[in-house]
Simulated scan of single mutants.
Amino acid sequence: MTRAYLDNAASTPIRDEVVKVITHTLKYSLGNPSSVQHSYGREARSILEESRICIAKNIKASPSEIIFTSGGTEANNLVLRSSVLDLGIRHIITSQLEHPSVLQTIIYLSVRYKISVDFISINEKGILDFNNMEEILKKNVYKKTLVSLMYANNEIGNLLEVDQVIFLCKKYNAYFHSDTIQVIGNIPINMEKLNFDFATASAHKFYGPKGIGFVFIRNNILKKIKPFITGGGQENGIRSGTENIHGIAGLSEALRLSCCNFASYIKKMQYLKSYCISELQKIIPNIIFNGLSSHPEKSIPSILNFLYPTKKDHLLYFHLDLMGVSVSKGSSCNSKKKRSHVIQSIITDRCLLNKTMPIRISFGIFNEKKDIDLLVKALQKIGK
């Protein structure tokens, strides 16, 4: 059966070049990077630090600001928990659109450590109200505050107006954490120009291996962070444990390859998205695109989210899968829920929600026009 994989926001296929790097590292790098007394350990250490340098170079950061983790969820947890425990954060500002690894961790911290939490108002397109954000910051100016907002939403693709957030954080002396998991490796990012205090990344979102990611922590903050995992003192003393050398090497190679080809990849993604929008409009009268996903200048090129009129409820995705089309209703971490918390946050019309199902299409560099054609044909069959 011909298949179309259109769930790249959940996980991307791994590149052949990355597989080669991982395989070579697994086969020939047998040393522990902390065992620098012999050549095997020093070789592993060299791979680790060269990878760190490569990653830092591609996001315009210092190598010492890169701390490796098991992925995006751990990276977000590290930032949020360390901010409360080590930086003395007593107030967190976020939105209802964040990833579960952010929202659930914030809820836990608010209960466990009596941290006050405010959610920025959003409209039906998922646009944040920055006047409301400033009101919240002003009201809590005497509390140590962390603002946690994702750069590109993983369900509706909205791009955050980061310059506005950075301006307000600086004005009110708040720390800024951005979940950049859909951004790093997919669009250019420059930490020299963006005044983020923390940012997070996961390799399997940009054609690298699963189970490896990193957190960016600004150097002036890094020295204040105590061990998140204790033991051997690896990763600047923050995350103990023998580093995943083959995963790190694969992450580094995946990021390097993406950064070398951003212009062509973004152009391709924009074409696929534009074509998909026009084809969907032909078969679905008055189609509703969620958030700003259909606005090319205000959303990430790889994500398109819309409401599909159907009575098949959650079986819609299985019907599409049987026809060879892989899509999702939103974040894979929310797959057990009937409705995405993001969609429920921006669509207040319950009647509309009951008559439709959200479909998230997320494009990747290996997708072609024929994948969209297969999706459209499958939707037409389901609609009959």
Rank of each mutant, 00 (worst) to 15 (best):
K138V: 03
T105H: 08
E243V: 14
I343H: 13
I55Y: 05
H295K: 11
A9H: 02
D7V: 06
I361S: 07
L320F: 05
C276L: 10
T348H: 15
A152D: 03
E49G: 12
C333F: 13
D321V: 02
T200A: 03
N173Y: 11
I55T: 02
E74V: 07
Q104A: 07
K267F: 05
I343P: 10
V36W: 02
K138T: 05
D373W: 00
G31V: 14
L146C: 02
K384R: 12
I212Y: 06
S64M: 03
A263T: 12
M133N: 09
S202M: 05
F206R: 07
F306C: 05
T69V: 11
I361P: 05
E155L: 05
L251I: 02
G213W: 01
D163A: 12
P33D: 05
D16W: 01
L375R: 11
K139L: 10
Q344Y: 09
D7H: 09
K381F: 01
R15K: 14
I346P: 03
L159N: 08
T145D: 02
Y317E: 14
E65F: 02
N76V: 02
S299D: 10
S328T: 15
A263I: 13
P227W: 06
I59K: 03
N236G: 10
T94E: 09
T348I: 13
Y108H: 01
I245T: 06
V325K: 06
E17G: 09
T12I: 11
K311I: 07
E43L: 13
I122L: 13
R350D: 13
A44E: 02
L251V: 00
K268F: 08
K60H: 09
K381Q: 07
L255K: 00
I187R: 08
K282G: 11
F363W: 01
C169P: 02
T230V: 15
T105R: 08
P301A: 01
S110K: 01
M269R: 03
S70D: 14
K282C: 08
I212G: 05
M1P: 04
L149H: 11
L160D: 01
R52V: 00
G185K: 02
P63N: 14
A201G: 10
L103K: 10
T23F: 00
S264F: 02
S62Q: 12
S278H: 04
R42Y: 09
A249T: 01
P188Q: 13
R350H: 12
T73W: 03
G237W: 14
G364E: 04
S328M: 14
Y308K: 09
N186G: 00
I266V: 06
S340P: 13
F206T: 10
S46E: 14
N123Q: 04
P285K: 10
R81W: 00
D197F: 06
T180V: 02
K377D: 12
G231L: 13
I372S: 05
S51I: 01
I59R: 03
K336V: 07
I283P: 11
C351R: 10
G237H: 11
F216Q: 14
C333T: 07
